[in-house]
């Protein structure tokens, strides 16, 4: 789980409703991605390229249980790095196999457009553009194994506990 790409930056207290607003609830997961940050950064979702990295601010993902992390993953983002992350958003990041790690100071260590190199397992975040490196909080082994398996659904599918088909993936 190593990623190297340009970064996008957002501010503190980014909430789940900005990522997945209520008015997108009835759409398919694929359609929902076009609504990411539509209220605070209209047009941004179309600019994201597959593999880009998101640098969040403090208290990233505050709010609801909605699958906001799934929308960020489906948008093509490789991972999220933020100083600290709301616990419920973090759960959904694990659930949907979207790597999200906490790294104090990361919000100040990057300018938008910088190139980042993120090693999720080693918990290291490097700003390639500025030549700096930060130490992140390692993900617990138990949660890494869920992410490596592709999230909760593949685990349950494999043992036949849920149907193999469904819109939610």
């Amino acid at each position: 789980m190593k990623f190297k790409a340009r970064v996008w930056k957002v501010g503190d207290n980014i909430n789940t409703d900005l990522i997945l607003p209520n008015r997108a609830f009835y759409l398919t997961p694929e359609e929902q991605v076009t609504y990411v940050f539509s209220a605070n950064r209209p047009g941004w979702a179309a600019e994201v390229k597959k593999g880009d990295i998101l640098i969040g601010g403090k208290n990233f993902g505050m709010g609801s249980s909605r699958p906001a992390a799934r929308s960020l993953r489906n948008l093509g983002l490789a991972c999220l790095v933020a100083p600290y992350i709301n616990g419920l958003f973090f759960r959904n990041a694990v659930n949907f196999a979207f790597p999200a790690i906490e790294c104090p100071g990361v919000d100040e260590a990057f300018d938008e457009g910088d190139i980042a190199e993120v090693d999720v397992i080693a918990a290291r975040v490097r700003n390639v553009t500025q030549g700096t490196e930060l130490i992140a909080k390692p993900l617990p082994e138990q949660l890494l194994s869920i992410i490596s398996a592709g999230g909760i659904y593949p685990l349950l599918e494999k043992e036949g506990s849920i149907s193999a088909k469904g819109l939610s993936r």
Binding site: S65, R66, G151, Y153, L156, S161, I162
Partner: peptide, 19 residues
């Protein structure tokens, strides 16, 4: 509060992880 997939996992397994 947990995620949607968490609750499906919980209904099946009767357990979950907490940090």
């Amino acid at each position: 509060g947990v995620g949607g997939p968490d609750i499906i996992y919980a209904a099946v397994k009767g357990e979950t992880w907490f940090r």
